[in-house]
Computed example of a mutant assay.
Amino acid sequence: MSIKETINSAKSGWMAGGGPEGDILLSSRVRVARNLKGYAFPHLLELEKAEQVIYAVQLALENQVLKDQANELEITRMSELSPLERQILVEKHLISPNLLTEYQKKALALRDDEVISIMINEEDHLRIQCLLPGLQLEKAWTLVNQIDDALEHTLDYAFSEDFGYLTACPTNVGTGMRASVMLHLPGLVMVDQVGAVLATISKLGFTVRGLYGEGTEALGNLFQLSNQVTLGHSEEEIINSLNSVTRQILTQERQARKALLHQRKDQLEDKVGRSYGLLKYAHMISSEEAMRRLSDVRLGVELQLITGPTSEQLTELMVMTRSSYLMHQREGKLNSMQLDVLRARTISTKLNQGG
């Protein structure tokens, strides 16, 4: 799949339904940060040096060892894409918002199925990422580790015997690993327990962020949970710890949903039914409201209160309804009212076809 095909499609490998714990957990992500010895960190790199880093990674990707491990990873420079195209990659969770700044220095290596992506000259020279549906942290780490080992056959990483892998941000020093899960927690939100649960998690050394990572909102009751510290912990310890905390949250969310079904079923059915009807028949809808209503419908589908749409289709609509994707499909600038009309039409078409 070419980068243009990736941008034109709202689907991605991590959206596939049927992942472990997929009723609550949308995706698992593991990424490692690596830097090349002898080069300044990306924010200090001049354009010429940044291009040298990209070229070095390209040579490593052409190494037959890596091809055997990861199939084809195609490099695209961010300068080759339009602002809308770059934003769509963020909305598909294939790159971070950081790759949008100083984009002339930056590039992306992406596997055909979009499960593996390597951000080049983001905060670090390499951010190797694997994104899988459901709770699959161990598998994601295995795939990332294979890519990392294969790249290291060619690339000379900045590494300290005392501190581990050296990174631009001190919190990434050590393993350089960040593991995260994307959780849909409408039950805990509705019973007004999500704040207490997330506050407890933060005290245990985990970070809770919004839909698109650091500094973003928890749109549609979606939260990203990740480890906060990498130094002094092995990759396996990080994975096991996150798995343990995640399973506790899954239990609490399921208890909240069960309580809602037993104690507030009429209210719950009314809420999800109204949202489903509005999404199917509204003439205009804002991005924020669309995310909120899609969250309600997803909850209704998982609790078997609604039949028709699948969780995979609802996840795809999270991308299809973003302003950047809608404008890209129309190949032109739309005002806010036109976007709201097109968004409603897009959702209605998808749901009425699916249901």
Rank of each mutant, 00 (worst) to 15 (best):
4 K>G: 10
5 E>C: 10
9 S>Q: 12
12 S>Q: 08
12 S>Y: 04
26 L>W: 09
27 S>F: 04
28 S>W: 01
28 S>G: 03
32 V>Y: 00
36 L>T: 04
37 K>H: 10
38 G>E: 12
40 A>W: 07
42 P>H: 03
48 E>Y: 04
50 A>T: 06
51 E>D: 14
51 E>W: 05
55 Y>F: 13
55 Y>N: 15
56 A>Y: 11
60 A>G: 07
61 L>M: 04
61 L>P: 00
61 L>A: 03
67 K>C: 05
68 D>R: 15
72 E>Q: 15
76 T>L: 15
84 L>C: 05
84 L>D: 09
85 E>G: 06
88 I>L: 09
88 I>Q: 10
88 I>A: 10
92 K>C: 09
95 I>Q: 07
96 S>Y: 12
98 N>M: 15
111 R>W: 08
113 D>G: 08
120 I>P: 01
129 Q>D: 06
131 L>C: 11
132 L>F: 01
135 L>W: 11
135 L>Y: 11
135 L>M: 14
136 Q>L: 15
141 W>I: 12
144 V>D: 08
145 N>Y: 12
153 H>F: 13
158 A>R: 02
159 F>M: 01
161 E>F: 10
162 D>A: 09
162 D>V: 10
166 L>P: 00
167 T>A: 00
168 A>D: 00
170 P>V: 09
174 G>E: 01
178 R>I: 01
181 V>T: 05
186 P>R: 04
189 V>D: 07
207 T>R: 12
212 Y>C: 00
212 Y>F: 10
220 G>R: 05
222 L>M: 13
222 L>Y: 10
224 Q>A: 06
225 L>I: 13
225 L>C: 11
225 L>R: 10
229 V>Q: 10
233 H>F: 15
234 S>D: 12
238 I>Q: 00
240 N>I: 09
241 S>K: 08
242 L>T: 04
242 L>K: 07
243 N>C: 12
248 Q>T: 06
249 I>F: 02
249 I>V: 13
249 I>C: 05
251 T>V: 06
252 Q>T: 08
254 R>C: 11
257 R>T: 04
257 R>G: 04
260 L>P: 01
262 H>P: 04
262 H>V: 07
262 H>R: 11
266 D>T: 11
268 L>S: 02
273 G>Q: 07
274 R>L: 05
275 S>Y: 02
279 L>Q: 03
280 K>W: 03
281 Y>W: 09
285 I>W: 05
294 L>I: 15
297 V>S: 05
308 G>K: 07
313 Q>F: 15
314 L>G: 04
320 M>C: 07
321 T>A: 03
322 R>P: 02
323 S>F: 06
329 Q>P: 05
332 G>L: 09
336 S>I: 13
343 R>L: 07
343 R>Y: 04
345 R>I: 05
346 T>M: 03
347 I>R: 01
353 Q>A: 12
355 G>N: 09
